[in-house]
Design a protein around this nucleic acid. Structure first.
Length: 136
DNA sequence: GTTCTAACA
DNA sequence: TGTTAGTA
């Protein structure tokens, strides 16, 4: 048999991931240390990343470029996982029902709510740059 | 040759 | 973060 999710298969060494994400190996390892990504290891203790991990790192790269620090990125990634979970639950309960992605407006509202809960307005350490796009 | 950890700048 | 040292 194969892996449940092909996107979760441990396939790439850090060098490939570095090229795919345009992040240095140093950065990729550092983000792992901060629990932003958790690649599996080979027998020789080599890190092996999945498509899922690569997508996550690309998302992290994008947020870093926008000036969001690690704490803020964690919040966003957490929201993304919640969305994935809810999506899976919805598919199980209503397998025949037509699926629908969240609208941009709903996504912004979700992000705004979560960021407010984290108290980012009173904690400048979470935001390094502009985040106005999250609460338009 | 590549990757890993730890450490220094 | 970049880079280097000593390994596996």
């Amino acid at each position: 048999m194969e892996y449940k999710d092909r996107k979760a298969m441990p396939l790439f060494p850090i060098s490939i991931v570095s090229e795919l994400t345009e992040l240095s190996a140093r950065q990729i390892r550092y983000y792992e240390e901060k629990s932003l990504v958790t690649p599996l290891r080979s027998e020789g203790n080599r890190r092996l990343y999945s498509f899922y991990d690569v997508d996550r790192l690309i998302e992290i790269k994008r947020l870093i470029d926008e000036g969001v620090n690690l704490a803020g990125i964690k919040q966003v990634l957490k929201l993304k996982e919640i969305q994935i979970q809810e999506k899976q639950v919805t598919e199980q309960q209503k397998p025949k029902e037509q699926k629908r992605d969240l609208t941009e407006k709903e996504l912004h509202e979700l992000l705004r709510r979560e960021l407010l809960e984290s108290g980012y307005l009173n904690n400048s350490s979470i935001i390094q740059g502009e985040l106005s796009r999250f609460y338009h």
